[in-house]
Design a protein around this nucleic acid. Structure first.
Lengths: 107, 107
DNA sequence: TTTGTTTATCGTAATATTGCAATATAATAA
DNA sequence: TTATTATATTGCAATATTACGATAAACAAA
């Protein structure tokens, strides 16, 4: 085998796992970090900030986009990326749920 | 290549990516979910709840343990697992930081 | 001691991810 | 039209992950 048995788990479990997978690579964390350091949605220069080749960065951006963690809007020749706050909300809510259920635990 | 260039990123970026990677599989999300449904740290029966064989579950538990997301304490023949609230804190703080930096953005 | 119970490790096959050179695509500028 | 610029896609090699049968290790009970 080797493929994950995603059919055996709930839609929500797969959804959360998908969000975390999108964030499970340091390059993608670095992209999110970078998008947070600039005041507006940023066009392009992400490639120059990362120690990776352009196709690799493009691939990581695609994964973040597919997971709805970032949004990209076309702006002439370039594409402007910014973080999708709705997805941040979704993850925060998940941990809010965990935090809530952790009350009255032995830990 | 194929190996991730973790040396090129900051310790914190690698650390966060590692935490998310530990949560990037539905089985591991399901384990965390299950640990939250029981009142106390639970011994063993995680294998019976998941649609996976015992060695596979053991492997997933190991990854969650290595990432400090769960703690396991030996209790006779069995091992009692529970969620590590410190790590939940760390992740929540990360998103708190993201949320804070997202203020005054175009998104 | 032997037996049973619980969890971990080994070995390995199937599959997925990562990274990049080469190339393609899309829009603008000359 | 032909450049130029910015991003995406393809193809492939290197590596990592996932899953599980077989087996091992650790401990309790008989």
């Amino acid at each position: 085998m080797g493929a994950s048995k995603s059919d055996s788990f709930s839609i929500e479990q797969n959804e959360m796992a998908g969000l975390f997978k999108a964030l499970s690579h340091p390059a993608r964390i670095a992209i999110v970090d970078y998008l947070l350091t600039v005041d507006t949605c940023i066009c392009g220069d992400i490639v120059e900030v990362l120690p990776l080749a352009q196709p690799t960065v493009s691939q990581h951006l695609k994964e973040l986009k597919n997971a709805n963690i970032i949004k990209g809007t076309i702006e002439g020749t370039a594409i402007c990326y910014c973080i999708n706050p709705d997805t941040i909300d979704k993850i925060e809510n998940h941990f809010g749920m965990i935090r809530h259920k952790l009350k009255n635990k032995c830990c």
